[in-house]
Design a protein around this nucleic acid. Structure first.
Lengths: 346, 346
DNA sequence: GCCGCTTGTCAAACCGATTCGAACCGTGCT
DNA sequence: AGCACGGTTCGAATCGGTTTGACAAGCGGC
């Protein structure tokens, strides 16, 4: 097959015996109607020539690029896409966008990178909208959002909520009620000494999970004992192990532990096993996130599932919607609910 | 600040008192020189107007989009980006591309999706080159590569090697020698009964690791005992646990295990602990891949590191290079070497 | 038979850059 | 003075689409 030049809309128009404009109408369902018989001819010509419109020419004139950017405001110097967690979100994003004929361009912000290259991207007209994953809390993320607002690119934030004033749409998880429900579940099973392995309390996510834990205790009339809360400095599993050890050494050790994420829970489980405790008989254990690892450990981890793929889907929907809307009406925050997945560890 | 229209090269030209062509010369270091003093004027105008060239206009004319596609030929219905593994590659890719002023557009192929949408993408002129992650073996991947070859988009494959006839460049890991070295390490430490928890032997990666294991035994004069090889059906950790149990039940159980990846190794470690074996005293354990999880278990996992980020970097380099080369000279396969990371488990 | 309206089509302008061929300019050489 | 020349600059064409404004045809209503 002779890779002959390249096929443009003019070729199609010529073969179909119509003007180039009509080709455009047929391809995009233009503002004017096209006679069915004409459309048929054009379609056949497209088929025959194997015509595929040039995305850049089209984007240039129509100002619609069919591309959404995915920016990760990262805080982890080692791994930009914090593995299974991020993968879930990415899966949802790409699936949704693909089904709508959009593409995803990813742009991780390296630690200490500065915003100038991102500005370049935002102002280059490549993107119809941008989805930003916010892992840090509001004041920290403001320069980034400020820039996006200034460039005028529609923006949807996921996870943390952006400062109100930007008026960006956002989607997050209901961490607090997830933690609350998990704790209530443990209390209902008769546990009275329930501990919490907290995440890095610098981040809203970790704080919300701690809050949910406390609220469940309060609602059940179980006094809060601060010695039962460990961690809080970091998401580092080795700290979790040390914390778990302290919990076990308590005069009245806990009979159940709610960890702030699965990784912490798995680390704790490892220690429990090595120390000869049985899970869940001696100590019940609940994780958070429901990453794939949770199913792979033995016993499989009971955990609070956060709908990772779902947040990706929803963000993509809002992003496309935002890019197609003319007036940039302010969008509200959506909160996705979590679900307790009962497995073997509690 | 009045979001005044949008700034184009003409505005810059007008302000600087030159023709639009000169603006282009200055921005891209055109083929013609520009007088230093003129360039200075243009630069000042660009600065003052905060001019950013439109990527689509530029791409249309210059036929260079500064975008690389990342296609994952996936086989996992649940998780398109198999978590930590994929994240490492993605990190390398994005970092390298960013440093060269390129962007990454990701396109996961869902299971059973067909190739027509991908063809759309490839023929739309959005991509300067494409990086394809091949997880399946050659005959399976041919339709995909056939399509890419037909569209003429330069292509670099990572992990598995593409069929020779395409002439695509590729980068992979030296799985065999990694497994060999790990096994030799165990043998040198005095282990004589060394077992292997194999991955899914449908895939070349798993087979190469098994080969390396066998080769090390042969080189050391240790007879191969097929009862010491478990798994092989899948990468499923629960199979690994069953396999490990069978190994322990052997009349002469192994004193060391080489797992085909970290996830399998961690599962095995869990079982060992629950059964009261100490790692590494009773059974030494080596994983493969060095995903973040390997450092989080206790004892931390000794493992064969494959340079995940590195493969991303290299693939990005080759992709950019391939897109800038005129003649599409065939590129050879590169193999990245692995490294044994000694931690606590062996 | 004329008017106004809708429907379908077309030619031309436009999007915002790059690139080509030609013009311009000051110098050095004959 | 005339000319060739290399370095700059310019105007215009071009990339491949979309969108606008005009126009012709068809049609029902008066």
């Amino acid at each position: 097959m002779p890779r002959s030049k390249r096929v443009t809309h003019r070729d199609v128009a010529r073969l179909a015996g119509v003007s180039p404009a009509v080709v455009s109408y047929v391809v995009n369902g233009g503002p004017r109607g096209v006679a069915p018989e004409t459309a048929e001819r054009v379609l056949r010509a497209i088929e025959e020539l194997d015509y595929h419109p040039n995305a850049f020419a089209r984007g240039l004139r129509a100002r619609r690029t069919h591309t959404v950017g995915y920016v990760v405001d990262d805080f982890n110097p080692l791994d930009v896409f914090i593995s299974p967690y991020s993968a879930g979100i990415l899966t949802g994003l790409t699936a949704e966008l693909k089904s709508r004929g959009y593409y995803l361009l990813i742009y991780p912000i390296a630690i200490g990178e500065g915003l100038s290259r991102l500005e370049e991207l935002l102002r280059s007209g490549r993107l119809d909208a941008v989805v930003v994953r916010l892992v840090q809390d509001p004041p920290e993320t403001d320069p980034l959002l400020e820039l996006i607002a200034d460039t005028g690119v529609p923006c949807i934030c996921i996870e943390q909520a952006p400062s109100e004033r930007f008026g960006f749409g956002s989607v997050g998880f209901d961490d607090e009620s997830g933690a609350r429900r998990a704790t209530l579940y443990l209390l209902q099973r008769g546990h009275r000494r329930v501990a919490h392995l907290a995440g890095d309390l610098k981040y809203a996510t970790a704080r919300a999970r701690l809050e949910g834990y406390k609220r469940a205790l309060a609602e059940s009339g179980v006094p809060f004992d601060e010695r039962l809360v460990e961690g809080g400095q970091d998401w580092d599993p080795s700290l979790a192990i040390a914390g778990t050890r302290r919990l076990l050494d308590l005069p009245e050790p806990p009979t159940a532990i709610l960890a702030a994420n699965d990784s912490l829970a798995v680390s704790a489980m490892g220690l429990l096993h090595r120390e000869g405790y049985r899970v869940p008989e001696d100590v019940a254990l609940i994780g958070f996130d429901d990453v794939p690892l949770a199913q792979e450990v033995d016993p499989p981890l009971t955990t609070v599932r956060i709908p990772l793929a779902e947040i990706g889907h929803r963000a993509a929907q809002l992003a496309v919607q935002g890019s197609e809307a003319d007036g940039d009406r302010r969008q509200p925050r959506e909160v996705l609910s979590t679900e307790l997945v009962r497995r073997g560890s509690a």
